[in-house]
Simulated scan of single mutants.
Amino acid sequence: MEFFEKLYDEHENVNVRFVGFTTESTRYDFGIVYTNLFFSKPLVICMQTGRSTLLDPKDLEDIEYLQKAFKLDLYEQAADLSEFFREAIPGARFEEQYD
């Protein structure tokens, strides 16, 4: 352990939301961890693939980012996720938290 410099070691009680839903073509199962860490961006985890990313409302405007983050085959799938996460992701962005 002498080779490592600890950057952080935080304990936090967080809210977690588990949600499953379907679109016309795909089933989704996500865990959303609402935390004060990571500039208060929720950690979104695809329960089917284990892929995860931090998301804020600005990230949801970038459909290609969602497609890449969750390795989705179709742009339409990422657009569906963007629409869903707009309701599930809090509205306060990093810049607004420190004004």
Rank of each mutant, 00 (worst) to 15 (best):
R86H: 11
P42S: 06
S25V: 03
Q48C: 08
P42F: 09
A78P: 01
Y34E: 04
Y65P: 00
R86M: 13
S25W: 01
F85H: 05
V44H: 06
T35G: 07
K68C: 06
G31H: 02
D80W: 00
L60E: 11
P42L: 07
R27Y: 07
I32E: 05
R86L: 06
T49P: 00
E83N: 08
G91N: 12
E2T: 09
Y65H: 10
T26C: 06
S52W: 01
R27I: 04
F18T: 09
L72G: 03
N15A: 06
S40L: 12
G50R: 10
E87N: 13
V44C: 03
S25N: 03
L81S: 01
K71S: 03
E10L: 07
D80L: 00
P90T: 08
V44K: 04
V19A: 08
R17V: 06
L55W: 09
V14N: 05
F4D: 13
Y98E: 15
K6T: 14
I89W: 05
F94W: 12
P42I: 05
H11A: 12
F21T: 03
M1V: 15
F39Q: 15
D29K: 11
L72V: 06
V44L: 10
Y28T: 06
V33T: 08
E87W: 12
D80H: 05
G50E: 06
P42E: 04
F30R: 00
L74R: 06
N36S: 14
K71A: 05
Y28R: 00
M1N: 10
N36H: 09
F30K: 03
G20L: 04
E61G: 15
V44P: 12
G20A: 13
R86S: 08
L54R: 04
F38S: 14
A79V: 12
E2F: 15
D56P: 15
D80E: 03
R93G: 10
R17I: 12
Y98F: 07
E96V: 10
Y65D: 11
F85E: 08
E5T: 15
T26P: 04
C46R: 00
H11S: 13
E5C: 14
S25A: 09
K68H: 03
L43F: 11
S40A: 11
F3Y: 15
Y65A: 06
S82Y: 04
E83M: 12
F18I: 08
L74G: 00
R27P: 02
Q77F: 07
L54Q: 02
K58H: 14
N15F: 08
E10Q: 09
A79H: 05
I32T: 12
Q48D: 11
Y65F: 11
E95I: 13
F39T: 08
L54A: 02
Y98C: 14
L55N: 03
D9V: 11
K58N: 13
V14L: 11
H11C: 14
L72E: 00
L55H: 07
E76L: 08
L74K: 09
G91Q: 08
D9K: 02
V16L: 13
E10I: 07
T35D: 01
E12Q: 12
G91A: 03
I89A: 04
S25T: 12
K6N: 08
Y98A: 05
C46A: 06
L66G: 00
A92V: 14
I89V: 15
T53D: 13
F94T: 05
N13L: 09
D59R: 12
S52V: 02
D59W: 10
